[in-house]
Computed example of a mutant assay.
Amino acid sequence: MHRYVETGTLSSVDSGGNLMFDWLKSLFVAQPQSTAASVQAEEEYNGFMIKIAPMPVGGQYRISAHISRVGAEEPSHHLIRADLLPDLDTAVEHTRLKARQAVDQLGDRLFSTDQ
């Protein structure tokens, strides 16, 4: 038995499980992507705690880290860069370098609300 199925602007005849239609639909319908960044590494650097957590973006990883003073959760600074890297290991290493650079250049000014 066939029934007419309409999904948004795509329509098809469905016989209970049309694999071709599902495959075509997957090409045109955006799939939800996780943007949750899990902490991959933590390190203490010059009195600051750096939590390295690259963000997954379309099969790549964006540089992302949380920086705080050692022994204090607040205040903290969320470092996010536009850089996209092809794999997690490379993203972790580049995030580590960028976070250290921010600490070296800005120190406590990372937490300043005055711009």
Rank of each mutant, 00 (worst) to 15 (best):
A41T: 05
Y4Q: 14
I67D: 00
Q31P: 01
L19P: 07
G59T: 03
E6H: 13
M20F: 15
G47S: 09
L19K: 15
H78D: 07
E6Y: 08
A102Q: 08
L85E: 05
A91M: 02
E6A: 09
N46Q: 15
A91P: 03
A91F: 00
F48L: 04
T90P: 05
S15M: 12
L24D: 10
A91W: 00
L79R: 01
R62W: 00
Q115H: 15
D104K: 09
G16W: 03
E44Q: 12
G59F: 06
Y4S: 12
T35A: 06
F48G: 01
D104T: 09
N18F: 03
R109V: 08
V92D: 02
E6I: 14
R96Q: 07
E73L: 07
G71T: 04
S12K: 07
L24P: 06
K51R: 15
Q31R: 12
V103L: 06
S38N: 12
V92F: 03
L110V: 04
T35L: 14
S11C: 11
V103Q: 04
G8N: 13
D22Q: 13
Y4W: 10
G17K: 12
L85N: 01
H94E: 15
Q105I: 11
I80Y: 03
I63P: 00
T113H: 13
L84K: 03
D87L: 04
V103W: 03
A36W: 10
L19F: 14
A41E: 10
Y4P: 06
H2R: 14
E74R: 09
I80H: 07
H77Y: 13
L27G: 09
S26Q: 08
G59V: 01
G58D: 08
D114H: 15
G8S: 09
Y61E: 01
S38E: 15
R62C: 02
L19C: 08
F48W: 02
R96E: 01
I80F: 08
G47M: 06
G47P: 02
L106C: 12
D83P: 00
M55P: 04
R62P: 00
V39C: 11
R69A: 03
R100A: 07
A91S: 02
T95P: 02
S15V: 15
G17A: 11
W23F: 15
E73F: 02
I50G: 00
A91E: 02
L88D: 04
A36K: 10
E44W: 03
E73A: 12
Q101R: 13
T95N: 05
H78Y: 09
R69H: 03
P56G: 02
G71S: 05
M49Q: 11
S64N: 13
Q33F: 08
G59C: 03
T35V: 12
M49R: 11
I50E: 00
L85P: 03
G107I: 04
V92Q: 03
T113Q: 14
V103N: 05
G71W: 06
G107T: 05
Q105C: 11
V57E: 06
V57G: 01
K98W: 09
N46P: 02
N46T: 08
H78R: 07
L19M: 12
K51Q: 11
V13H: 07
T113V: 12
D87H: 09
V13T: 10
G59Y: 03
E6V: 13
L88Q: 06
E44P: 01
S15L: 13
I67K: 01
L84P: 01
K51V: 01
P56S: 06
L97I: 12
A41H: 05
